[in-house]
Design a binder for these strands. Structure first.
Lengths: 229, 229
DNA sequence: AGCAAAACCTGACAATTATCATTTTATGTA
DNA sequence: TACATAAAATGATAATTGTCAGGTTTTGCT
Protein backbone atom coordinates (compact mmCIF):
# COMPACT_ATOMS: atom_id res chain seq x y z
CA UNK A 1 0.00 0.00 0.00
CA UNK A 2 2.31 2.65 1.22
CA UNK A 3 5.37 2.54 -0.99
CA UNK A 4 8.49 4.36 -2.07
CA UNK A 5 8.13 7.41 -4.32
CA UNK A 6 11.05 6.12 -6.36
CA UNK A 7 8.80 3.34 -7.60
CA UNK A 8 5.58 5.27 -7.76
CA UNK A 9 4.14 5.57 -11.23
CA UNK A 10 1.83 8.38 -10.28
CA UNK A 11 4.58 10.94 -10.24
CA UNK A 12 5.06 10.48 -13.98
CA UNK A 13 1.97 12.64 -14.30
CA UNK A 14 3.26 15.55 -12.28
CA UNK A 15 6.32 17.65 -11.67
CA UNK A 16 7.88 15.11 -9.30
CA UNK A 17 9.09 13.28 -12.38
CA UNK A 18 11.79 15.90 -12.66
CA UNK A 19 13.29 15.07 -9.27
CA UNK A 20 16.50 13.10 -9.09
CA UNK A 21 17.07 10.02 -6.96
CA UNK A 22 18.33 11.82 -3.89
CA UNK A 23 15.48 14.24 -3.91
CA UNK A 24 12.94 11.49 -4.35
CA UNK A 25 14.48 9.61 -1.48
CA UNK A 26 14.03 12.60 0.77
CA UNK A 27 10.45 13.01 -0.33
CA UNK A 28 9.82 9.36 0.26
CA UNK A 29 11.30 9.47 3.74
CA UNK A 30 9.24 12.41 4.86
CA UNK A 31 5.99 11.99 3.03
CA UNK A 32 2.88 10.97 4.91
CA UNK A 33 0.36 8.65 3.36
CA UNK A 34 -3.23 9.54 4.11
CA UNK A 35 -6.66 8.18 3.42
CA UNK A 36 -9.40 10.73 3.05
CA UNK A 37 -13.04 9.77 3.05
CA UNK A 38 -15.55 11.22 0.65
CA UNK A 39 -16.78 14.51 2.05
CA UNK A 40 -13.74 15.13 4.24
CA UNK A 41 -11.63 18.24 3.74
CA UNK A 42 -7.93 18.10 2.93
CA UNK A 43 -7.62 21.78 3.67
CA UNK A 44 -9.79 24.85 3.96
CA UNK A 45 -9.58 28.25 2.31
CA UNK A 46 -7.41 30.59 4.36
CA UNK A 47 -5.33 27.85 5.96
CA UNK A 48 -1.58 27.89 6.00
CA UNK A 49 -0.31 24.82 4.17
CA UNK A 50 2.81 23.07 5.38
CA UNK A 51 3.14 21.06 2.24
CA UNK A 52 1.47 19.76 -0.86
CA UNK A 53 -0.76 16.79 -1.53
CA UNK A 54 -0.05 14.33 -4.29
CA UNK A 55 -3.22 12.50 -5.28
CA UNK A 56 -2.80 8.74 -5.64
CA UNK A 57 -6.44 7.91 -5.94
CA UNK A 58 -9.85 9.50 -5.91
CA UNK A 59 -10.95 13.01 -6.74
CA UNK A 60 -11.06 16.28 -4.85
CA UNK A 61 -12.90 19.46 -5.60
CA UNK A 62 -11.03 22.74 -5.21
CA UNK A 63 -13.45 25.48 -4.37
CA UNK A 64 -13.67 29.03 -3.16
CA UNK A 65 -16.38 30.55 -1.05
CA UNK A 66 -18.05 33.59 -2.57
CA UNK A 67 -19.45 36.57 -0.70
CA UNK A 68 -23.01 35.30 -1.07
CA UNK A 69 -22.16 32.07 0.68
CA UNK A 70 -21.92 29.82 -2.33
CA UNK A 71 -18.99 27.60 -3.13
CA UNK A 72 -17.54 27.94 -6.58
CA UNK A 73 -15.69 24.84 -7.70
CA UNK A 74 -12.67 26.02 -9.61
CA UNK A 75 -11.06 22.72 -10.48
CA UNK A 76 -11.24 18.99 -9.91
CA UNK A 77 -7.99 17.29 -8.96
CA UNK A 78 -7.44 13.60 -9.48
CA UNK A 79 -4.77 10.91 -9.78
CA UNK A 80 -1.35 12.35 -10.33
CA UNK A 81 -2.23 15.94 -9.60
CA UNK A 82 -0.57 17.97 -6.90
CA UNK A 83 -2.71 20.20 -4.71
CA UNK A 84 -1.58 23.17 -2.70
CA UNK A 85 1.53 23.96 -4.70
CA UNK A 86 0.30 27.41 -5.61
CA UNK A 87 0.11 28.56 -2.06
CA UNK A 88 3.35 26.85 -1.03
CA UNK A 89 5.19 28.57 -3.84
CA UNK A 90 3.66 31.97 -3.27
CA UNK A 91 4.10 31.49 0.48
CA UNK A 92 0.53 32.58 1.02
CA UNK A 93 -2.51 31.14 2.74
CA UNK A 94 -4.51 28.87 0.43
CA UNK A 95 -7.12 30.64 -1.61
CA UNK A 96 -9.05 27.41 -2.11
CA UNK A 97 -10.60 24.63 -0.07
CA UNK A 98 -10.08 21.00 -1.02
CA UNK A 99 -12.78 18.46 -0.22
CA UNK A 100 -12.82 14.84 -1.32
CA UNK A 101 -15.57 14.00 -3.80
CA UNK A 102 -14.74 10.31 -3.60
CA UNK A 103 -12.62 8.30 -1.20
CA UNK A 104 -9.04 9.33 -1.72
CA UNK A 105 -5.48 8.26 -1.10
CA UNK A 106 -2.98 11.08 -0.99
CA UNK A 107 0.62 11.64 0.00
CA UNK A 108 1.41 14.73 1.99
CA UNK A 109 4.83 16.18 1.14
CA UNK A 110 6.33 18.79 3.50
CA UNK A 111 6.92 22.10 1.85
CA UNK A 112 10.59 22.36 2.80
CA UNK A 113 11.48 19.57 0.42
CA UNK A 114 9.51 21.19 -2.32
CA UNK A 115 11.09 24.59 -1.90
CA UNK A 116 14.59 23.19 -1.42
CA UNK A 117 14.28 21.28 -4.63
CA UNK A 118 12.85 24.27 -6.44
CA UNK A 119 15.84 26.32 -5.39
CA UNK A 120 18.45 23.80 -6.42
CA UNK A 121 17.06 21.76 -9.29
CA UNK A 122 16.08 23.94 -12.24
CA UNK A 123 14.57 20.98 -14.04
CA UNK A 124 12.10 20.56 -11.25
CA UNK A 125 11.32 24.26 -11.14
CA UNK A 126 10.71 24.36 -14.87
CA UNK A 127 8.53 21.30 -14.68
CA UNK A 128 6.42 22.84 -11.93
CA UNK A 129 6.27 26.00 -13.99
CA UNK A 130 4.98 24.09 -16.97
CA UNK A 131 2.19 22.56 -14.93
CA UNK A 132 1.25 25.89 -13.48
CA UNK A 133 1.25 27.44 -16.95
CA UNK A 134 -1.17 24.75 -17.98
CA UNK A 135 -3.42 25.41 -15.00
CA UNK A 136 -3.40 29.10 -15.81
CA UNK A 137 -4.50 28.47 -19.35
CA UNK A 138 -7.32 26.29 -18.13
CA UNK A 139 -8.37 28.99 -15.70
CA UNK A 140 -8.51 31.48 -18.58
CA UNK A 141 -10.75 29.09 -20.47
CA UNK A 142 -13.04 28.76 -17.48
CA UNK A 143 -13.31 32.54 -17.24
CA UNK A 144 -14.39 32.78 -20.85
CA UNK A 145 -16.88 29.96 -20.46
CA UNK A 146 -18.36 31.49 -17.36
CA UNK A 147 -18.95 34.82 -18.95
CA UNK A 148 -19.87 33.87 -22.48
CA UNK A 149 -21.77 30.61 -22.28
CA UNK A 150 -25.23 29.95 -20.97
CA UNK A 151 -25.86 27.74 -17.98
CA UNK A 152 -27.21 25.07 -20.30
CA UNK A 153 -24.03 25.10 -22.35
CA UNK A 154 -21.87 24.90 -19.27
CA UNK A 155 -23.88 21.98 -17.94
CA UNK A 156 -23.45 20.13 -21.22
CA UNK A 157 -19.75 20.83 -21.06
CA UNK A 158 -19.54 19.54 -17.51
CA UNK A 159 -21.05 16.19 -18.48
CA UNK A 160 -18.73 15.84 -21.42
CA UNK A 161 -15.78 16.79 -19.28
CA UNK A 162 -16.60 14.16 -16.68
CA UNK A 163 -17.13 11.54 -19.32
CA UNK A 164 -13.86 12.25 -21.09
CA UNK A 165 -11.75 12.62 -17.98
CA UNK A 166 -13.20 10.06 -15.61
CA UNK A 167 -14.96 7.65 -17.91
CA UNK A 168 -18.13 5.67 -17.37
CA UNK A 169 -19.11 2.41 -15.72
CA UNK A 170 -20.45 -0.73 -17.38
CA UNK A 171 -23.97 0.64 -17.42
CA UNK A 172 -22.95 3.84 -19.17
CA UNK A 173 -23.10 6.09 -16.14
CA UNK A 174 -20.38 8.59 -15.34
CA UNK A 175 -17.81 7.02 -13.04
CA UNK A 176 -17.49 10.19 -11.03
CA UNK A 177 -20.76 11.01 -9.33
CA UNK A 178 -21.37 14.57 -8.26
CA UNK A 179 -24.32 15.81 -6.26
CA UNK A 180 -26.65 18.24 -8.00
CA UNK A 181 -25.29 20.90 -5.74
CA UNK A 182 -21.72 20.14 -6.81
CA UNK A 183 -22.76 20.34 -10.43
CA UNK A 184 -24.33 23.71 -9.69
CA UNK A 185 -21.12 24.85 -8.03
CA UNK A 186 -18.98 23.72 -10.93
CA UNK A 187 -21.18 25.45 -13.43
CA UNK A 188 -21.83 28.51 -11.29
CA UNK A 189 -25.59 28.46 -11.04
CA UNK A 190 -28.38 27.80 -8.56
CA UNK A 191 -29.00 24.19 -7.60
CA UNK A 192 -32.61 24.43 -8.81
CA UNK A 193 -31.53 25.72 -12.21
CA UNK A 194 -29.05 22.89 -12.44
CA UNK A 195 -31.71 20.30 -11.61
CA UNK A 196 -34.07 21.81 -14.15
CA UNK A 197 -31.48 21.51 -16.86
CA UNK A 198 -30.78 17.92 -15.93
CA UNK A 199 -34.51 17.20 -16.22
CA UNK A 200 -34.57 18.97 -19.54
CA UNK A 201 -31.60 17.04 -20.94
CA UNK A 202 -33.22 13.84 -19.74
CA UNK A 203 -36.53 14.70 -21.38
CA UNK A 204 -34.64 15.33 -24.62
CA UNK A 205 -32.84 12.03 -24.32
CA UNK A 206 -29.37 13.55 -24.11
CA UNK A 207 -28.64 11.96 -20.76
CA UNK A 208 -30.09 9.35 -18.43
CA UNK A 209 -30.18 9.31 -14.65
CA UNK A 210 -30.53 6.74 -11.94
CA UNK A 211 -30.52 8.19 -8.47
CA UNK A 212 -27.72 10.66 -8.44
CA UNK A 213 -25.89 8.88 -11.22
CA UNK A 214 -25.89 10.46 -14.65
CA UNK A 215 -25.06 8.92 -17.99
CA UNK A 216 -24.37 10.58 -21.32
CA UNK A 217 -26.50 9.17 -24.13
CA UNK A 218 -26.26 11.69 -26.95
CA UNK A 219 -22.73 13.05 -26.79
CA UNK A 220 -23.20 14.64 -30.20
CA UNK A 221 -26.25 16.61 -29.10
CA UNK A 222 -24.48 17.89 -26.01
CA UNK A 223 -21.53 18.93 -28.14
CA UNK A 224 -23.82 20.78 -30.52
CA UNK A 225 -25.31 22.60 -27.60
CA UNK A 226 -21.89 23.66 -26.37
CA UNK A 227 -20.99 24.90 -29.83
CA UNK A 228 -24.11 26.97 -29.91
CA UNK A 229 -26.62 25.09 -32.03
CA UNK B 1 14.89 56.23 -24.43
CA UNK B 2 16.24 52.84 -25.22
CA UNK B 3 18.50 51.81 -22.40
CA UNK B 4 20.28 48.92 -20.74
CA UNK B 5 18.26 46.42 -18.78
CA UNK B 6 20.92 46.49 -16.11
CA UNK B 7 19.80 50.01 -15.25
CA UNK B 8 16.11 49.57 -15.88
CA UNK B 9 13.96 50.04 -12.81
CA UNK B 10 10.97 48.38 -14.37
CA UNK B 11 12.39 44.94 -13.91
CA UNK B 12 12.18 45.31 -10.16
CA UNK B 13 8.48 44.63 -10.64
CA UNK B 14 8.89 41.36 -12.44
CA UNK B 15 10.88 38.16 -12.49
CA UNK B 16 13.80 39.73 -14.35
CA UNK B 17 14.97 41.05 -11.00
CA UNK B 18 16.23 37.56 -10.25
CA UNK B 19 18.62 37.55 -13.20
CA UNK B 20 22.31 38.01 -12.60
CA UNK B 21 24.53 40.48 -14.43
CA UNK B 22 25.57 38.18 -17.22
CA UNK B 23 22.04 37.14 -17.92
CA UNK B 24 20.82 40.71 -17.90
CA UNK B 25 23.56 41.65 -20.29
CA UNK B 26 22.43 39.01 -22.72
CA UNK B 27 18.85 40.18 -22.43
CA UNK B 28 19.91 43.72 -22.97
CA UNK B 29 21.91 42.86 -26.06
CA UNK B 30 19.16 40.96 -27.71
CA UNK B 31 16.04 42.78 -26.61
CA UNK B 32 14.11 44.89 -29.07
CA UNK B 33 12.47 48.10 -27.99
CA UNK B 34 9.10 48.72 -29.54
CA UNK B 35 6.45 51.39 -29.54
CA UNK B 36 2.90 50.20 -29.90
CA UNK B 37 0.06 52.58 -30.66
CA UNK B 38 -3.27 52.39 -28.93
CA UNK B 39 -5.40 49.83 -30.70
CA UNK B 40 -2.50 47.93 -32.20
CA UNK B 41 -2.00 44.26 -31.42
CA UNK B 42 1.15 42.89 -29.83
CA UNK B 43 0.09 39.38 -30.64
CA UNK B 44 -3.02 37.46 -31.54
CA UNK B 45 -4.57 34.36 -30.06
CA UNK B 46 -3.15 31.24 -31.68
CA UNK B 47 0.14 32.83 -32.67
CA UNK B 48 3.47 31.25 -31.91
CA UNK B 49 5.45 33.61 -29.71
CA UNK B 50 9.20 33.86 -30.11
CA UNK B 51 9.64 35.70 -26.89
CA UNK B 52 8.02 37.72 -24.17
CA UNK B 53 7.11 41.37 -23.85
CA UNK B 54 8.15 43.45 -20.89
CA UNK B 55 5.88 46.46 -20.52
CA UNK B 56 7.70 49.72 -19.91
CA UNK B 57 4.75 51.98 -20.36
CA UNK B 58 1.08 51.93 -21.21
CA UNK B 59 -1.52 49.23 -20.80
CA UNK B 60 -2.55 46.21 -22.82
CA UNK B 61 -5.65 44.08 -22.65
CA UNK B 62 -5.24 40.32 -22.77
CA UNK B 63 -8.33 38.76 -24.23
CA UNK B 64 -9.70 35.57 -25.62
CA UNK B 65 -12.28 35.19 -28.34
CA UNK B 66 -15.33 33.18 -27.37
CA UNK B 67 -17.40 30.95 -29.63
CA UNK B 68 -20.12 33.58 -29.99
CA UNK B 69 -17.65 36.10 -31.35
CA UNK B 70 -17.17 38.19 -28.24
CA UNK B 71 -13.84 39.05 -26.73
CA UNK B 72 -13.43 38.31 -23.07
CA UNK B 73 -10.76 40.43 -21.44
CA UNK B 74 -8.98 38.20 -18.98
CA UNK B 75 -6.38 40.60 -17.64
CA UNK B 76 -4.89 44.06 -18.06
CA UNK B 77 -1.11 44.21 -18.21
CA UNK B 78 0.77 47.38 -17.40
CA UNK B 79 4.17 48.75 -16.40
CA UNK B 80 6.50 46.05 -15.17
CA UNK B 81 4.42 43.12 -16.27
CA UNK B 82 5.63 40.47 -18.64
CA UNK B 83 3.30 39.20 -21.33
CA UNK B 84 3.53 35.95 -23.19
CA UNK B 85 5.54 34.05 -20.62
CA UNK B 86 2.84 31.44 -20.15
CA UNK B 87 2.95 30.31 -23.71
CA UNK B 88 6.75 30.51 -23.94
CA UNK B 89 7.07 28.31 -20.86
CA UNK B 90 4.45 25.81 -21.91
CA UNK B 91 5.84 25.91 -25.46
CA UNK B 92 2.37 26.33 -26.81
CA UNK B 93 0.61 28.80 -29.07
CA UNK B 94 -0.74 31.78 -27.14
CA UNK B 95 -4.22 31.36 -25.80
CA UNK B 96 -4.72 35.11 -25.59
CA UNK B 97 -4.53 38.20 -27.77
CA UNK B 98 -2.77 41.32 -26.56
CA UNK B 99 -3.97 44.70 -27.80
CA UNK B 100 -2.75 48.07 -26.58
CA UNK B 101 -5.38 50.10 -24.70
CA UNK B 102 -3.09 53.10 -24.55
CA UNK B 103 0.12 53.95 -26.33
CA UNK B 104 2.77 51.56 -25.11
CA UNK B 105 6.50 51.04 -24.89
CA UNK B 106 7.57 47.45 -24.60
CA UNK B 107 10.76 45.43 -24.80
CA UNK B 108 10.65 42.19 -26.71
CA UNK B 109 12.90 39.52 -25.22
CA UNK B 110 13.66 36.43 -27.33
CA UNK B 111 12.48 33.23 -25.74
CA UNK B 112 15.83 31.46 -25.91
CA UNK B 113 17.26 33.72 -23.25
CA UNK B 114 14.25 33.18 -21.07
CA UNK B 115 14.35 29.42 -21.31
CA UNK B 116 18.14 29.24 -20.97
CA UNK B 117 17.96 31.26 -17.80
CA UNK B 118 15.06 29.19 -16.49
CA UNK B 119 17.12 26.05 -16.97
CA UNK B 120 20.24 27.32 -15.28
CA UNK B 121 19.22 29.88 -12.68
CA UNK B 122 16.82 28.44 -10.12
CA UNK B 123 16.30 31.85 -8.55
CA UNK B 124 14.88 33.11 -11.78
CA UNK B 125 12.70 30.06 -12.24
CA UNK B 126 11.32 30.39 -8.74
CA UNK B 127 10.66 34.07 -9.24
CA UNK B 128 8.76 33.40 -12.45
CA UNK B 129 6.89 30.68 -10.63
CA UNK B 130 5.90 33.09 -7.92
CA UNK B 131 4.49 35.54 -10.43
CA UNK B 132 2.61 32.81 -12.22
CA UNK B 133 1.22 31.58 -8.89
CA UNK B 134 -0.06 35.06 -8.29
CA UNK B 135 -1.67 35.23 -11.71
CA UNK B 136 -3.32 31.90 -11.09
CA UNK B 137 -4.81 33.09 -7.84
CA UNK B 138 -6.16 36.18 -9.54
CA UNK B 139 -7.67 34.04 -12.25
CA UNK B 140 -9.43 31.96 -9.60
CA UNK B 141 -10.85 35.13 -8.12
CA UNK B 142 -12.11 36.22 -11.50
CA UNK B 143 -13.84 32.89 -11.98
CA UNK B 144 -15.66 33.28 -8.69
CA UNK B 145 -16.63 36.85 -9.49
CA UNK B 146 -17.93 35.90 -12.89
CA UNK B 147 -20.15 33.18 -11.61
CA UNK B 148 -21.32 34.61 -8.30
CA UNK B 149 -21.62 38.34 -8.77
CA UNK B 150 -24.15 40.30 -10.76
CA UNK B 151 -23.17 42.42 -13.72
CA UNK B 152 -23.77 45.52 -11.62
CA UNK B 153 -21.39 44.30 -8.94
CA UNK B 154 -18.75 43.44 -11.48
CA UNK B 155 -19.06 46.86 -13.08
CA UNK B 156 -18.62 48.53 -9.70
CA UNK B 157 -15.58 46.38 -9.09
CA UNK B 158 -14.12 47.30 -12.45
CA UNK B 159 -14.30 51.02 -11.68
CA UNK B 160 -12.72 50.54 -8.28
CA UNK B 161 -10.03 48.36 -9.78
CA UNK B 162 -9.15 50.96 -12.37
CA UNK B 163 -9.10 53.71 -9.80
CA UNK B 164 -6.87 51.80 -7.41
CA UNK B 165 -4.49 50.45 -9.99
CA UNK B 166 -4.21 53.27 -12.50
CA UNK B 167 -5.29 56.30 -10.54
CA UNK B 168 -7.18 59.36 -11.64
CA UNK B 169 -6.36 62.66 -13.32
CA UNK B 170 -6.62 66.15 -11.85
CA UNK B 171 -10.32 66.34 -12.61
CA UNK B 172 -11.08 63.09 -10.83
CA UNK B 173 -11.50 60.95 -13.94
CA UNK B 174 -9.93 57.53 -14.24
CA UNK B 175 -6.52 57.80 -15.86
CA UNK B 176 -7.10 54.67 -17.88
CA UNK B 177 -9.96 55.19 -20.30
CA UNK B 178 -11.73 52.14 -21.63
CA UNK B 179 -14.41 52.12 -24.28
CA UNK B 180 -17.84 50.94 -23.19
CA UNK B 181 -17.25 47.85 -25.23
CA UNK B 182 -14.01 47.14 -23.38
CA UNK B 183 -15.80 47.54 -20.08
CA UNK B 184 -18.40 45.08 -21.29
CA UNK B 185 -15.67 42.65 -22.27
CA UNK B 186 -13.92 42.93 -18.94
CA UNK B 187 -17.12 42.36 -17.05
CA UNK B 188 -18.50 39.76 -19.41
CA UNK B 189 -21.75 41.34 -20.46
CA UNK B 190 -23.43 42.94 -23.45
CA UNK B 191 -22.31 46.45 -24.36
CA UNK B 192 -25.86 47.75 -23.96
CA UNK B 193 -26.15 46.33 -20.47
CA UNK B 194 -22.84 47.89 -19.60
CA UNK B 195 -23.97 51.30 -20.86
CA UNK B 196 -27.22 51.02 -18.95
CA UNK B 197 -25.38 50.35 -15.72
CA UNK B 198 -23.09 53.31 -16.33
CA UNK B 199 -26.17 55.49 -16.82
CA UNK B 200 -27.66 54.06 -13.67
CA UNK B 201 -24.54 54.67 -11.58
CA UNK B 202 -24.41 58.18 -12.96
CA UNK B 203 -28.05 58.82 -12.10
CA UNK B 204 -27.32 57.64 -8.56
CA UNK B 205 -24.31 59.90 -8.31
CA UNK B 206 -21.81 57.07 -7.85
CA UNK B 207 -19.80 58.08 -10.88
CA UNK B 208 -19.52 60.91 -13.36
CA UNK B 209 -18.78 60.83 -17.06
CA UNK B 210 -17.44 63.16 -19.66
CA UNK B 211 -17.29 61.70 -23.11
CA UNK B 212 -15.78 58.28 -22.65
CA UNK B 213 -14.04 59.30 -19.47
CA UNK B 214 -15.44 58.02 -16.19
CA UNK B 215 -14.79 59.28 -12.67
CA UNK B 216 -15.57 57.62 -9.36
CA UNK B 217 -17.49 59.91 -7.01
CA UNK B 218 -18.90 57.66 -4.31
CA UNK B 219 -16.29 54.96 -3.78
CA UNK B 220 -18.08 53.84 -0.63
CA UNK B 221 -21.35 53.25 -2.45
CA UNK B 222 -19.63 51.22 -5.13
CA UNK B 223 -17.90 49.15 -2.48
CA UNK B 224 -21.19 48.51 -0.72
CA UNK B 225 -22.63 47.32 -3.98
CA UNK B 226 -19.77 44.90 -4.50
CA UNK B 227 -20.20 43.57 -0.96
CA UNK B 228 -23.82 42.92 -1.68
CA UNK B 229 -25.77 45.76 -0.05
C1' DA C 1 -15.63 73.03 -41.50
C1' DG C 2 -18.04 69.13 -43.08
C1' DC C 3 -18.86 64.41 -43.59
C1' DA C 4 -18.72 59.50 -42.74
C1' DA C 5 -17.93 56.19 -39.46
C1' DA C 6 -17.75 54.76 -35.05
C1' DA C 7 -19.14 54.99 -30.46
C1' DC C 8 -22.65 55.85 -27.30
C1' DC C 9 -27.33 55.72 -25.63
C1' DT C 10 -32.36 54.40 -24.99
C1' DG C 11 -36.69 51.82 -25.41
C1' DA C 12 -39.25 47.70 -25.95
C1' DC C 13 -39.24 43.21 -25.52
C1' DA C 14 -37.74 38.35 -24.98
C1' DA C 15 -34.90 34.99 -22.92
C1' DT C 16 -32.39 33.41 -19.15
C1' DT C 17 -31.70 32.64 -14.48
C1' DA C 18 -32.63 33.13 -9.42
C1' DT C 19 -35.62 32.70 -5.55
C1' DC C 20 -39.06 30.86 -2.58
C1' DA C 21 -42.24 27.46 -1.34
C1' DT C 22 -43.51 22.90 -1.41
C1' DT C 23 -43.53 18.00 -2.62
C1' DT C 24 -41.34 13.80 -3.68
C1' DT C 25 -37.69 10.66 -3.44
C1' DA C 26 -33.48 8.72 -1.72
C1' DT C 27 -30.31 7.62 2.14
C1' DG C 28 -28.35 6.44 6.36
C1' DT C 29 -29.06 4.84 10.90
C1' DA C 30 -31.12 3.14 15.13
C1' DT D 1 -38.15 -1.86 8.92
C1' DA D 2 -39.13 2.61 10.14
C1' DC D 3 -37.92 7.00 10.93
C1' DA D 4 -35.31 11.24 10.47
C1' DT D 5 -32.70 13.68 7.42
C1' DA D 6 -30.83 15.14 3.32
C1' DA D 7 -31.13 15.40 -1.60
C1' DA D 8 -33.75 15.93 -5.63
C1' DA D 9 -37.55 17.68 -8.11
C1' DT D 10 -41.24 20.95 -9.53
C1' DG D 11 -44.24 25.12 -9.82
C1' DA D 12 -44.89 29.95 -9.58
C1' DT D 13 -42.93 34.16 -9.81
C1' DA D 14 -39.59 37.88 -9.89
C1' DA D 15 -35.26 39.67 -11.12
C1' DT D 16 -31.54 39.95 -14.21
C1' DT D 17 -29.61 40.14 -18.55
C1' DG D 18 -29.58 39.91 -23.66
C1' DT D 19 -31.26 41.26 -28.20
C1' DC D 20 -32.96 44.10 -31.74
C1' DA D 21 -34.03 48.39 -33.56
C1' DG D 22 -33.58 52.85 -33.65
C1' DG D 23 -31.85 57.13 -32.13
C1' DT D 24 -27.92 60.76 -30.80
C1' DT D 25 -23.38 62.18 -30.01
C1' DT D 26 -18.51 61.95 -30.69
C1' DT D 27 -14.43 61.27 -33.41
C1' DG D 28 -11.27 61.07 -37.06
C1' DC D 29 -10.24 62.42 -41.45
C1' DT D 30 -10.09 65.09 -45.79
Amino acid sequence: MESRCENCIIRQFNALRAMNKDELKKVSDSKVFKKVKKGEALFEEGEKLDGVFCVRNGVSKLSKLSANGKDQIVKLASKGEVMGQRSVIAEELTNLSAVAISDMEVCFIPKEIISDTLNTNPNFAVEVLRHMAHDLKEADDVIVNMSQKTVKQRMAEAFLYLKNNYGEDDDGFLSLTLSREDYANVVGTATESCIRIISDFKKNGFIKTSGKKIGVIEERKLLDLVEGF
